[in-house]
Structure formats: C-alpha cells, structure tokens
Nucleic acid binder design. Sequence first.
DNA 1: ACCTGAACACCGTTCAAGT
DNA 2: ACCTGAACACCGTTCAAGT
Lengths: 210, 210
Amino acid sequence: MTDTRIPLSRDRILTAAVELADAAGVEVMSMRKLAGSLGFEVMSLYNHIANKGDLITGMVDWIAGDMARLDPDRPGKQAVRDMSISAHDVLIEHPWAAPLWTRSMPGPNRLLLMEDLLAAFRRGGFSPRLAHFGFHAITMHIVGFTLQQLNYAETNSATDDAASAFIATLDPEQFPYMIEHVEYHIHDDEGGDFVFILDLILDGLERAKG
Amino acid sequence: MTDTRIPLSRDRILTAAVELADAAGVEVMSMRKLAGSLGFEVMSLYNHIANKGDLITGMVDWIAGDMARLDPDRPGKQAVRDMSISAHDVLIEHPWAAPLWTRSMPGPNRLLLMEDLLAAFRRGGFSPRLAHFGFHAITMHIVGFTLQQLNYAETNSATDDAASAFIATLDPEQFPYMIEHVEYHIHDDEGGDFVFILDLILDGLERAKG
DNA sequence: ACCTGAACACCGTTCAAGT
DNA sequence: ACCTGAACACCGTTCAAGT
C-alpha cells in the first residue's frame, strides 16, 4: 500500500495554516487541526517546522510577501503611501495577522519591506534620526490602526446591532461624545480614515524635514 | 477547623492576576496558577469572574485606572499630551497589557478615558469628524507605539547582545539601512521618540482644524 | 453563597518506534 | 528522511457535591 499523499513541506504547511486562520481564526488553528486539514498526524509537522512559534513567524512573513514592495520609480512620499495602503489591505484580508505582527521576529519578506521603507526616507533626504521616527510612525500606523479597526469590527459584530446595543448601555449624560463616536462608526465611516491619518503623518514628517 | 483565609472577591482576584502577569507574563498566568497564588482551588475563581475573557477585560481595565485622567483645567492639547504620556508609562509598566488592549471591550475606567479624550477634542473646537480622527490617531499611537517598543525590548532581550547578533545575520550590502536602524536603537534611543511622534500628531491635528 | 474534586475535551511537545 | 502512536504536562470549563 503506497502512500499517495503529496508529501509535507514548510510551504504546504504555511499555506494551509494561513488558509485555516483566514477561515476560522488563529485561536482555532491548533497544531492538531492544522495537521488534520492536511491529512497527516500532528507530529509530522515537526519534521518541517521547529515549533508553533516558528509556524506563526512563518505565517506572518507569508502574508508580508503579499504586500506591495515600494516602487523605487515614484517619489518617496508617494511610494511610502502606496506601500502603506497595500500593507493595510493585506492585514485587513488576514485579520489574525495584525495582532501577531509585533509579536514575532521579522522574516525575510518583512525585512525587505522594512529596508525599503527606511531606504525611501534616507534617500528622500531624511536624517537617520528622522528616518527612524518616520519608520516607527508609519509601521505603527499600519499595524496599530488596523488593530483598532479590526477590534471595532469584532466587538460590534457583523451587523451594527451590537454597536447600538453598546450605545444603549451608556448614560447619555456621562458619555455624550462616546455615543457620538460610536454613531460615527455606524453611519459615517467610509473607510478613508486610514489614509487620512497616514497623510497627516507623511505631511508632518515632510515638514519636520524642513 | 474554621477557614482563616480572606475570602475571594473580584478585586482580590484582579490584583493577584495583575501581579502575576507583571512578574511572570500573561502567557504564564493560567487560571490554575492564579488560584494557587491566592491559596484557593481553580473553580473558586468562577464564583467571582465569568471566565478567562472576563478576567482579562478586568485586568486591562484595572491598569487603565492607573492612567492619569485628562486635566480639564489645562488647554486641550496639553491635557491630551499629558494623558498620553501617562498612559504610555502605565503600559510600559505592565508589558502584557498593550497586546490585550485592543482585544477586549472597554471597561468602566477605559470608558472614562475615552470620553475625556473625545470631549477634549470636541470642546477644543474639533468637528465630530476631526475629533474622530484625532481620537484614533492618539489611541493608536499610545498602544501601537508601546507595542513596537516592547517588541523591540523583547526580541533584543535584556542586553544589546541579541541586537548585535541580529545585525550580524544581515548582509550589509542588502540591508544597510536596517543595520543603521537597529544601531540607532542600541546607541541613540533615549526614550523621547514616543513624545516626538505624539507632538507630530498633535500639531498635525491642530493644523487640520484650520 | 461560596468552595471543591473529579471529569471532559482539548492543548504543544518529547520520545521511541516504524518505514 | 519522513511519518506515527503513545505518553506527559499542561490548559479552560462543566457539573455535582459539599458547607
């Protein structure tokens, strides 16, 4: 009885892991279920990945590979803007990734993005110090904003019913602006907020360059 | 044989949980160990908290209570600046909290901080829309920046040896700016970066107000 | 009302055994 | 070299039983 299964590999495992996390969430994706989804036993995975931490690092770097590299032919500010928007899009596509982003070491794909970003600032005439600030401001915005956005989507569930229910628990005397804020999210949020703050940061950095 | 132990309460449990997480990290703080540190059995906890999610929400809100409320007597921009710095300090003191911040619903203490922040913007003459942007930009900076900072401290371990080792793995031809960036973290990072970017955001918002 | 023990349905990972 | 079964040391939580 020969084994007709396609043999495991790091790539196959990572692809399946991303798929599983996309479909069911990371908290559901256990080593056992991952192996099961591939038709192998748990321990087979350990022939290709070191441990669960290694798996997660690989998953994060896997989706980093989907983010658009900086276009070297465009002005630095435009290239950074495009990359940021692409990165944000990818993180929204894979909602499990943003919380893990800051918790794992950068893999090869992420390293390339980081180098690109720093290079764009330095070649654009930023001092090492200002490039350093710019780097942190931009990456922080990409990950942090997405994190908040996803959290909002989650706590307010699919529909806006939960948001309305949340408002109902608030005393309008004590939390008038909080209520206004949540209502903004329900009615007026067209998704342009990420880019608005991004431009605010980019303009601020350019001004700081002097 | 009478029981001389101080009876459990939600407050006692939360205090012990924060203490345990501070000392050993959240990933180590299990329900079983938490109960053990209090001298009770696991299941006793469930008489005071609903489940682990409830516990974590409570822990996050517990430390939110340590953050300085906005001073209503100061100009809005200054008050927001002070609150942000205080919040950042508290998150650095409790390194487990920032990753959980965006993953749990706001409790009573956090709600007050959020309302304060929104009120400062609105009373300072911001439109609902701009107050909304400002709110997200500031909270994102507080949590996101701290997250990156903690991650850096972690991957580079206590000493700078790990950072140097990390640099050593990088090809200087391919990653010149990445190397420069990590070296900045090792040598020139005096901790003023959080405030620098904070001011950049505050100035940007004020300018957007027109 | 609050505390507890046993049990259930899970985890990640080690180790020795197979091919 | 790669796959596997059994076992270990954990989890969070339910349920029935105690006081």
